[in-house]
Amino acid sequence: MISKEDVLNIASLSRIHLQDNEIDQLTKNLEDILEYIAKLEKLDVSNVEPTSHVLPIENVYREDKVNSSLGQSAALKISTENQNGSFKVPKVIE
């Protein structure tokens, strides 16, 4: 069961502000999704290896070689605001 509190918690973790009418709708939607997914729980997976990835490949590395970076000005082009070569954001202190 998904509660209204769960939805509000997820919204807050995701930095999403919800209107009152959206909360009930989303609670129902999430509930439906979980119910649908719950069908998987009925499958017998006792003979299936646990896996963390959909592709049957492993050990994909790169060698420790430096390649050129974007550089400061290119990087800052995607910023909404910048100052002294840095991305400028609202003041945050945890």
Partner: peptide
């Protein structure tokens, strides 16, 4: 790395 200024924070990635 975050540098906190008086009115904003600056980020160096």
């Amino acid at each position: 790395k975050l540098i906190h200024e008086s009115t904003c924070s600056l980020v160096d990635y």
